Structures are given as C-alpha cells and as structure tokens.
Amino acid sequence: MEKTDKERIAELEITSAQLEIVSKENKKDIEKLQNTTELLTELKVIAFQNSKQMDRQLEINERQTLQNEKLNLTLTTMDTNLSKLNEEITDINQRVTKIENGSDRGKFDVIAFISNDVPKYIGIAILAAFLAYLGLRQ
C-alpha cells in the first residue's frame, strides 16, 4: 500500500508544523540565551567595577591603618609626657608644702620688724650720731 499524495501532503504538513514548533522553541531558547549573555556581560562589568572599588578601599584601609598607628604613637607619647608632668607637679607641690610648713624664714613680717628691730636700729643710729658728734668736737 502506497500512500496517496494527500496522505504524503498531510504527513509533510504535520512534519512542517512540528518543525515550526521546534523552530519557535529554538527561537525562544536563543532569545533566552541572548538575554543570559547580556546579563552575564553586565555581571562581568559589575564584578570588574567591584574589584576596582575593593582595590581602592584596600588602599584607603592601608592608609588609615598607617594614620592610626601614627596617632597611637602620638597619643602614647602624649600620655608619657602627661604622666611625667603629673609626677613633676606632684613633686613641686610636695616641695612647696615642705617650704610652707617647714620654716618661716622666707616670710617677712613687717609688724614684727617695726616693733622689735627698728628701735634697735634707731638706738644704734643715735649712738653713732652721738659718738660722731663727740669725735668731731675734740
């Protein structure tokens, strides 16, 4: 049994329809692949930009680390200097307290000088003037 032309045409139409369906599916797959390729290209660009940004951030972090180390050294030096200054102030305060409590030699009391010492000096001056008067008279 041989197929008639109509049967062959029907089979060809069915095959043609199946090929069109496959072709449409392939076309959709190709479009998806193109979209995926575009997305991959965009992701590649983004990844490159992120890589560059990370490199810049690493450089910034290294500079900040160096600055922090310098600041730490400065603050340590300041702390040492302030500690020494505090010790010196404590020593000075102790010396001042000893001087203030230890003796009154450094203080000058005007009232005591006038009441005790001035009459002595006046007496000596009168005696000296009297002796000079006597000495010049002879």
Score class of each variant (00 low, 15 high):
S16R: 14
S16Y: 15
S16K: 13
S16V: 05
A17C: 03
A17H: 07
A17K: 09
Q18S: 14
Q18R: 13
Q18I: 06
L19W: 10
L19H: 15
L19E: 12
L19Y: 15
E20R: 15
I21P: 00
V22R: 06
V22D: 06
S23R: 11
S23N: 05
S23P: 03
S23C: 02
K24C: 09
K24N: 14
K24F: 12
K24M: 08
E25F: 04
E25C: 07
E25Y: 03
E25L: 10
N26W: 06
N26H: 11
N26I: 05
N26S: 05
K27R: 12
K27A: 12
K27G: 04
K27V: 02
K27M: 04
K28F: 13
K28S: 12
K28P: 01
K28T: 06
K28R: 15
D29Q: 10
D29K: 14
D29I: 12
D29M: 11
I30M: 02
I30F: 05
I30V: 03
I30H: 05
I30C: 01
I30W: 04
E31L: 00
K32C: 00
K32G: 02
K32P: 01
K32E: 00
L33W: 02
L33S: 14
L33P: 01
Q34W: 00
Q34T: 07
Q34Y: 01
N35C: 05
N35E: 07
N35K: 08
T36A: 11
T36R: 15
T36L: 13
T36Q: 14
T37G: 11
T37N: 10
T37Q: 12
E38D: 13
E38G: 10
L39M: 11
L40H: 01
L40A: 11
L40R: 07
L40S: 08
L40G: 02
T41S: 14
T41R: 07
T41N: 10
T41W: 04
E42P: 01
E42R: 09
E42K: 06
E42Q: 06
E42L: 03
E42N: 10
E42G: 09
E42M: 04
L43K: 11
L43F: 08
L43R: 08
K44D: 03
K44I: 00
K44S: 03
K44A: 01
V45H: 04
V45L: 00
I46M: 03
I46D: 08
I46P: 01
I46V: 07
I46E: 12
I46K: 01
A47C: 09
A47L: 11
F48T: 08
F48R: 08
F48M: 06
F48K: 05
Q49N: 13
Q49C: 05
N50K: 03
N50C: 11
N50Q: 12
N50R: 01
S51Q: 14
K52N: 15
K52Y: 10
K52L: 15
Q53V: 02
Q53S: 08
Q53A: 07
Q53D: 08
Q53K: 07
M54H: 13
M54N: 11
M54E: 12
M54C: 09
